[in-house]
């Protein structure tokens, strides 16, 4: 299936283990396993350079803390668009110490949710079966630019921590025209023209 990663269309190079014997699989494979497989197979998975885990909505992220340090992908699922557990799972994964990989959302996603997903830590979405990949890629960008600022801190602002901008709590401009002393820059909108253009998807 096609993916949109940070707004760009990319191929899905990952393979699911799906009950196969991992020893028979080429170590260069980007391998996606379930939490149960991850804990049962342990060391037998260590030869894979790229290992990911696919979580069900009810799976608890916190016991995976150690594993997350070596995982390159966490895939989450929205069984239905209004089942919002993936948003909290994404947040917990993104905030886990040492996780630098991809967080992928799959399942029933509405494009109106892309910005919420992105701000919760998701960077990649699996385009729904009937979806036009390019339009989803455009939607990712458009939704990210829809608001010039947000009222609350979220995962998308973590990258600012190391910067010299002061810490903020309630609200933050994402545009460089910010006037508030509380401002940070998460997404830089170059000018008003491109900003206005972002609505017209």
């Amino acid at each position: 299936m096609a993916l949109v990663k940070n707004g760009l269309v990319v191929d899905d190079l990952w393979e699911s283990l799906d009950g196969r014997d991992p020893d028979t699989i080429d170590a260069k494979t980007a391998l996606l396993v379930s939490p149960a497989e991850l804990s049962a197979l342990g060391q037998r998975l260590s030869r894979f350079g790229q290992l990911g885990v696919a979580l069900a909505p009810a799976d608890d992220v916190r016991p995976l803390a150690e594993d997350l340090k070596r995982l390159a992908l966490v895939a989450l699922t929205l069984p239905k668009f209004n089942d919002g557990r993936a948003f909290s799972q994404a947040r917990l994964v993104r905030e886990a110490d040492g996780f630098k990989g991809e967080i992928r959302a799959t399942g029933h996603i509405l494009r109106d949710q892309l910005n919420f997903l992105r701000r919760s830590g998701v960077d990649t979405i699996e385009v729904p079966d009937d979806g036009d990949v390019d339009s989803w890629a455009r939607a990712w960008d458009a939704e990210a630019r829809r608001f010039r600022g947000y009222y609350q801190t979220a995962v998308d602002h973590h990258s600012n921590r190391a910067s010299s901008t002061p810490p903020t709590v309630l609200r933050r401009w994402t545009a460089p025209t910010a006037v508030s002393v509380l401002a940070t820059n998460a997404i830089v909108i170059q000018d008003a023209t491109s900003y206005a253009g972002a609505w017209a998807y």
């Binding site: 910005n115 701000r119 979220a154």
Partner: peptide, 17 residues
């Protein structure tokens, strides 16, 4: 008001049970 601002379009808590 502080809660209103924090909760407005909160990315994580918009599809609660």
């Amino acid at each position: 008001e502080i809660i209103r601002q924090w909760s407005t379009l909160h990315p994580e808590f918009t599809f609660l049970p």
